[in-house]
Design a protein around this nucleic acid. Structure first.
Lengths: 185, 185
DNA sequence: GTCTATACCATGATAGAC
DNA sequence: GTCTATCATGGTATAGAC
């Protein structure tokens, strides 16, 4: 157990704020170090590289996303579990909202995060999420509708981040459900 | 009139491909120059800076988007022009599809493009587009639904870029129309 | 275990020769 | 219109002080 305000934690907090506000590659390590009153190499004691620092910030969200689908996938051997689209989309919205600052960072900077193989991981759980919504072997048309639903909701969690959750969630989920059910699976 | 394969044009083509494939900041000017068999300073003869190069690639898409809304906005003094949502969303999809390579670049690298004030411009025409869809003074809930529709369609133009237009457009527009009309304006 | 001092290399950018 | 030479900056990495 580390102390509540140890250097590592403070670095993570400052880096996260600057990365989200002005971009990952637009934030120099010097800038982070200056903000904390330490030197650049001191960062390298706590994090092996810039990539390591980014990874430590992004990992919790990725874990959350992957756990979300894993928990809802049918147990091995069991038939496909039925999921109410409204409930599933609503729960997904809550998760996207919870991680909205890191989510915007990931969406807006995929190229920077490519070395972390984030693209592949996102693509994977997004695909699994679509299967949960549509059942096995959905048509291409249905997958496209699901993409509108999921992508649109993610956009809302990011674009209306300044509003209270209760005001955004309802309309966003209603619209997503409508998009999803507009095309037969 | 420039010759069909002058250096400037070749630079733009190569830069565009590399920027889209591996990211703007992940592509060095050296890499672009090497690919063309010229040196870095030669690039600086044709473009004042890296930013100028990026701007030249992004500008046509931004112009297209801004013209799209301007053409459809009511003439000064006239009442709000009525727009069929399905038609408007369909036309917008065509435009997003046409510029999908640059669009993915802009969406995925907003921080890199911040100096070009692209965020403000995108926000502006997106807002105007929402007004065209919903009429003046829409509720927040309706705006959220419109964001799901527009954001979801953009995602589709990017994610299903490898499929033929005819296969993607239909389902994407249907889903977007459903999302938009799910919430009262 | 925590940090400073220092060096190294790639990059964006400019000046001036051809 | 293109090149050689050069500079400042910033990411990375190591050596060593405390």
């Amino acid at each position: 157990m580390a102390k509540p305000t140890d250097t590592r934690t403070r670095i993570l907090a400052v880096a996260r704020e600057l990365f989200v506000r002005q971009g990952v590659r637009e934030t120099s390590l010097r800038e982070i170090a200056d903000r904390l009153g330490i030197t650049k190499p001191a960062l390298y004691y706590h994090f092996a590289s810039r990539e390591d620092l980014v990874r430590s910030i992004v990992e919790p969200m990725m874990d959350g996303m992957e756990r979300f689908v894993a928990e809802r996938e049918p147990r091995d051997g069991a038939g496909p579990a039925a999921h109410d689209p409204r409930e599933l989309l609503g729960d997904y919205f809550d998760l996207a909202w919870e991680h909205r600052d890191v989510l915007v960072m990931v969406i807006r900077e995929l190229p920077v995060l490519a070395p972390l193989e984030l693209g592949e991981r996102m693509f994977s759980w997004r695909r699994r999420l679509i299967l949960l919504l549509l059942g096995p072997e959905p048509t291409t048309a249905a997958q496209i509708a699901a993409t509108v639903a999921l992508g649109g909701m993610s956009d809302c969690a990011v674009e209306y981040a300044h509003l209270p959750l209760e005001q955004v969630k309802g309309p966003a989920v209603e619209a997503a459900v409508a998009a999803l059910t507009a095309v037969p699976a």
